[in-house]
Design a protein around this nucleic acid. Structure first.
Lengths: 165, 165
DNA sequence: CCAATCTCAGAAGTACTGAAATGG
DNA sequence: CCCATTTCAGTATTTCTGAGATTG
C-alpha cells in the first residue's frame, strides 16, 4: 500500500476547490472513490499482512474449491503473469498449496490449506469493516443502491467485451 | 493508455464466474468501474493526444483563471511533483504558458492560451461522450443518483482527512 | 531559521505484453 | 501443428517520497 496517508497532500489554503467541470464528473468520482476504497481496504488487509489480490484468490478458492492458476486468473481478473507471484507469496506462508495436476500435467492445482481457511476468515472480517468505513455516509438502502448501479455498469461493459471477441 | 483492450484477457471457458463474496463487494465494484472509466475516458482523450491530467489542469485554469502550480495541484489533486511534467507537456504544445510570478518569485503563473481554450472545448466534447458511453446502461435519473452517492462518499472522506490535520 | 514553491530522481504498486518451456 | 498453461523478463502508468535550490 503506497503511503497510508499519514503524509502531506498540500494544504487547502485556496478556497476555490475543485473546478465545477470536474466536481460532478462520474469518471472522476469513480476514480476518487476507488482510490479511497483502495486505501481503506488496503489498510485493513495490511493489518493481516495481506493485499487485495490475496483476498481475491482466497475467496475464489474457498468458493469454487481447488483450481488451476488459469482458472483463478479468470475468476479474479488477476493477470496470469501476476498471479504467479501472488501464489508464490501465499504458498510461502502456508496459506495455499501448489501441486501439479495429475490429470493435466500442464497445470498446477492450488488448494486452500486449513491455515488458509482461518486466514480468510480474518480477512473477511477486516474487509467487511473496511466496507462499512468506506460507505459510512450512506444508509443501508443507499449502499444497496450504489452496489446495484455499479453492478449494472460493470456487467454492461463485460458483456460488450465478450461480444467483441 | 495501456493497451486499448484489443488484447486477450484469458477466455471465459469456466462457467463459474466471480466468487459471490467478491461479486457485490463495493470496493471491488468501484475498482472495476473506475478501471472501465479510465479506459473509456482515456481512450477518448487519446483521440486528441491528451490524458486525464491534461483535462483536469485545463478545466481548472478555465474556471479559476491563471494559477500557480501549487494551486493547480490542490484543485486537481495531482501531486506537485507530477504536475511539473504535465505542465511541461502542455507548455510544449502551446496549450498553456508558464511564466514566473512577478509578485512572488518562487511561483510560476500558468495561463491558458487561446489555443488551449480551443483544445479544452474539444476535450470537453470527448469527455462528455465518454461519460455517456461509460454510463450507457443507466437512465438519466440513475446517473444522477450514482453521482450523488459517489459525491457523498468522496466528500465524507475529504472532510475526515481535513479533520485529521 | 522556518515555510512555501518548483524541480528532479526514484520507489512501489498496478496493469499489461511477449515469449519461452512444457504438455494435450 | 495448434492450443493451453505456467513462468519470466520487461514496459508503461500512476501514486507517492525525499531532498535540493530558491525565495518569502
Amino acid at each position: 500500500m503506497p503511503g497510508m496517508n499519514t503524509h502531506d497532500m498540500p494544504p487547502p489554503d485556496d478556497r476555490l476547490g475543485t473546478p465545477e467541470r470536474l466536481r460532478a464528473l462520474p469518471s472522476r468520482l469513480l476514480g476518487l472513490c476507488s482510490a479511497q476504497a483502495d486505501r481503506t481496504v488496503g489498510g485493513a488487509l495490511a493489518q493481516a499482512d495481506a493485499r487485495r489480490w490475496h483476498y481475491a484468490v482466497l475467496a475464489a478458492l474457498a468458493e469454487s474449491g481447488p483450481a488451476s492458476q488459469a482458472q483463478l486468473s479468470r475468476h479474479t481478473r488477476i493477470y496470469r503473469s501476476d498471479l504467479v507471484a501472488v501464489i508464490n507469496e501465499l504458498a510461502d506462508r502456508g496459506i495455499v498449496e501448489r501441486a501439479p495436476d495429475p490429470g493435466d500435467r500442464r497445470r498446477n492445482v492450488i488448494t486452500l490449506t486449513a491455515r488458509g481457511r482461518r486466514h480468510l476468515e480474518r480477512l473477511d472480517a477486516l474487509v467487511g469493516d473496511a466496507q462499512d468505513e468506506l460507505l459510512a455516509p450512506l444508509s443501508r438502502a443507499e449502499r444497496a443502491q450504489l452496489t446495484a448501479l455499479l453492478t449494472r455498469v460493470v456487467d454492461h461493459h463485460d458483456a460488450r467485451r465478450k461480444e467483441e471477441r
